[in-house]
Design a protein around this nucleic acid. Structure first.
Length: 273
DNA sequence: CCAGTATCCTGCAGGC
DNA sequence: TGCCTGCAGGATACTG
């Protein structure tokens, strides 16, 4: 589900509503997510700690605790974080609940279990097997200087490169398709067969589409919602994602679709070369 | 090292 | 009305 704009929206919501709260209890059953989740052992660590800061790295969310340590969260395809009152019914597949000192709960639900919740002890962040491999942040002010040479050195289709978290961290299937349409680059084009000029345009398009999506609260297609239960309105701005068969918003030709790196992608056969 | 494919899991839409 | 197939905002283990 969630790419950078959705994770950033969740981050801001948690920061606004939960900063300073203390964890008073942990509930949930052990379950195999991307990494094993064991609420009982988490409870021994987390109870009594305070939610101090909320950070994002790529599609990962990091919750810094006082006096020390960090909770690492990834939402995978179907993960959701929800701020709720105890009286509100829990979502299906609610795997973890943090009870807070003001009576509210922070709940993690993940239908498909491609996400993760993990505990990072002090110092563990730099060594983490997922975090340590992440590439540049797309909202980095220098992205237009950094990204072109990275992509130009590879033979894979640019669409696959944009979604490779080791190169650029936070872009997924929706925003890769949208950025390529904006930059007028065909998603099948190889990185090393795309000029540095055009790759610079692509980097600017990536930053632009992500910035606008964050401003709209992300993209709600199916189950994504903010922790307060709101939706992301960038779905209204999507030009090509999921629109195969419809007219290109720029030139009117019929958008086509294909599979690149195992993911369906739509593009305009006229605008995008 | 690089590129491409299979795999993890549940739910839902569409075809027969 | 079922039943079956394919597909979905992702990451990674594996193959060639």
């Amino acid at each position: 589900m969630p790419e950078l704009p959705e994770v950033e929206t969740v981050r801001r919501s948690l920061e606004l509503h939960l900063a300073g709260r203390t964890i008073t209890g942990v509930e949930g059953e052990a379950v195999k997510l991307r990494r094993p989740l064991d609420p009982k052992s988490l409870a021994r660590i987390l109870v009594g700690r305070r939610l101090e800061a909320f950070r994002r790295r790529g599609k990962f969310l990091l919750v810094d605790l006082e006096p020390e340590g960090t909770i690492l969260v990834h939402l995978g395809m179907s993960g959701r974080l929800q701020i709720a009152q105890p009286s509100e019914p829990r979502l299906p597949h609610n795997h973890l609940v943090l009870l807070l000192d003001d009576g509210r709960e922070l709940r993690y639900a993940d239908t498909r279990r491609f996400g993760l919740v993990d505990w990072l002890a002090p110092g563990a962040e730099a060594m983490d097997s997922s975090l340590s491999k992440l590439g540049v942040e797309p909202l980095d002010p220098h992205i237009a200087e950094i990204l072109p040479s990275l992509l130009h050195a590879r033979r894979a289709p640019v669409k696959a490169l944009l979604m490779d978290q080791r190169l650029i961290a936070g872009v997924g299937n929706i925003y890769a398709a949208e950025a390529l349409w904006r930059a007028r680059i065909r998603p099948t084009r190889a990185g090393n067969r795309t000029s540095l000029n055009r790759l610079t345009n692509l980097a600017v398009a990536v930053r632009g589409v992500l910035t606008e999506a964050v401003a709209q609260g992300g993209t709600t297609l199916r189950d994504y919602a903010t922790p307060e239960g709101g939706y992301g309105y960038f779905a209204l701005e999507l030009k090509v994602y999921g629109r195969q068969g419809e007219p290109c918003p720029s030139c009117g030709s019929t958008l086509r679709a294909g599979v690149i790196a195992g993911r369906t992608t739509a593009w305009c056969p006229i605008c995008q070369r």
